[in-house]
Design a protein around this nucleic acid. Sequence first.
DNA 1: AATAGTAATGTAGTTTTATTATATTTTTGT
DNA 2: ACAAAAATATAATAAAACTACATTACTATT
Lengths: 284, 284
Amino acid sequence: MNTLEKVQKSLTHFSKSERKVAEVILSSPQTAIHSSIATLAKMADVSEPTVNRFCRRLDTKGFPDFKLHLAQSLANGTPYVSRHVEEDDSPDSYTTKIFESSMASLDTARQSIDTTAINKAVDVLTQAKKISFFGLGASASVAHDAQNKFFRFNVPVISFDDVLMQRMSCINSNEGDVVVLISHTGRTKSLIDIAKLARENGAAVIGITARNSPLSTVCTLPVTMEVPEDTDMYLPMASRLAQLVIIDVLATGFTLRRGPRFRENLKRVKEVLKESRIDKDPIL
Amino acid sequence: MNTLEKVQKSLTHFSKSERKVAEVILSSPQTAIHSSIATLAKMADVSEPTVNRFCRRLDTKGFPDFKLHLAQSLANGTPYVSRHVEEDDSPDSYTTKIFESSMASLDTARQSIDTTAINKAVDVLTQAKKISFFGLGASASVAHDAQNKFFRFNVPVISFDDVLMQRMSCINSNEGDVVVLISHTGRTKSLIDIAKLARENGAAVIGITARNSPLSTVCTLPVTMEVPEDTDMYLPMASRLAQLVIIDVLATGFTLRRGPRFRENLKRVKEVLKESRIDKDPIL
DNA sequence: AATAGTAATGTAGTTTTATTATATTTTTGT
DNA sequence: ACAAAAATATAATAAAACTACATTACTATT
């Protein structure tokens, strides 16, 4: 709970002098956080240790710590919290909500990611003879994006959003090939089949999917994460953002592993793209 | 401005030692606010007065005051700050950096968006006879994603990532059709041509692009935003995330405008998708 | 390349601030 | 009214922050 609210709510539980302190703080929290313990004590007409005890009673380490907590509760901007869009939200309101929910989801996703898996995936990718990215539905565009990115690395890379093409491609895969499967739920039947198919043909299978999902168990290397349920709009939103950022992370890991000379290459690719533009300017 | 952002932005203006202090704070602001000046100085491997000078340089009265400000900015808006990936970053470190940079970019994007334009775009989209999404390169996958989303709305929707197909499609467009063009820079020649072509044929042209870019000027309805330069990896990252979220916003606006009965439809689409899955579970 | 000047950083001492230990007062219950 | 307990204050101690000044590291100029 917010510290200021806590002071307010505990008002009755305080002793006489402590209440004096609370009153002073409530009447002007801004002053409180900028005062020393001595000043505050004088304002409340109590002794310094009383103020100190007051702070500890509110589960803080002492006066400076209490000020910190108080300062935070004064800056009462609810940080990125996932909020549902309501029927009568204004454009301004639902825009903000969707952006903030997206950010909040990325945050939870980040916290749930196993960087050891990331590192292994980068290992595998850097050594790949051929990389394929497969996804279906909303995840197909993530695969598409991944293809675009790795294509710049000058590695053989494929992406199909057609189930049959995906199957065919997997049947032709060999030892040294890497198949990256993208699925939010990790329950899409055909993708699970494809994972098995690829393994049977000796390819390494990286799965960007949910922890403990069926897909994650059939992959040779699952890169799992937890993404909060998509909002009440019946559309996939947060999940694919997190997937895209994972792709970014893998791509970045890839370039880091390849070293500085490799990045010169990328620069060249970027230069070439400039010619399709009206002016000097970065990426597409 | 938010103190944490300020630290980030002033990085270049700092002296060598002050930068060390800044890095320590940025890498773990939570630790910073709970440390004494001595501890922080030791962590940054500088002297205490250096930390003090650092604080004053950021327009605070001193170290305790700085901590207060920092605490507020942590509670307040942007806990995420864009940081560059370094050559020798660990997987854990670059993963965090990329996620946080992504979130920070979304935040700046959000702040720069004109919700009036969003609202108009939703207007136009809901009345469209046919919707086309076009992008090239990294923006192509955004277009692809948009198609997937609007397809569920049961509206005629197209997406091509081939320039010629895009042209042909525009030539055949009519009054009442809507063309959505996606480009981070807004300088891609062929997309600008396409915008003109579509207008000549009476279509409404929505441009998801940079403010004041050539593309934004030829659209009938530019939905512009500012996305901080992509990181020093020569790859498009933040920009397309913001574009995707804009798509989400437009899609959400669309369903809101269509009312509750329409959302029943979406639910049905979702139900159907379940059959392709191993178990009960949401979206792809 | 040497040197004066300037900026940056660190050392050590000083002041301020917070905390602890203990004494005093107030409250409460019998 | 008095003892016991709780609350509060005083004074001493410890911790933290700050200041003045010394040293070092740069920059530019000859």
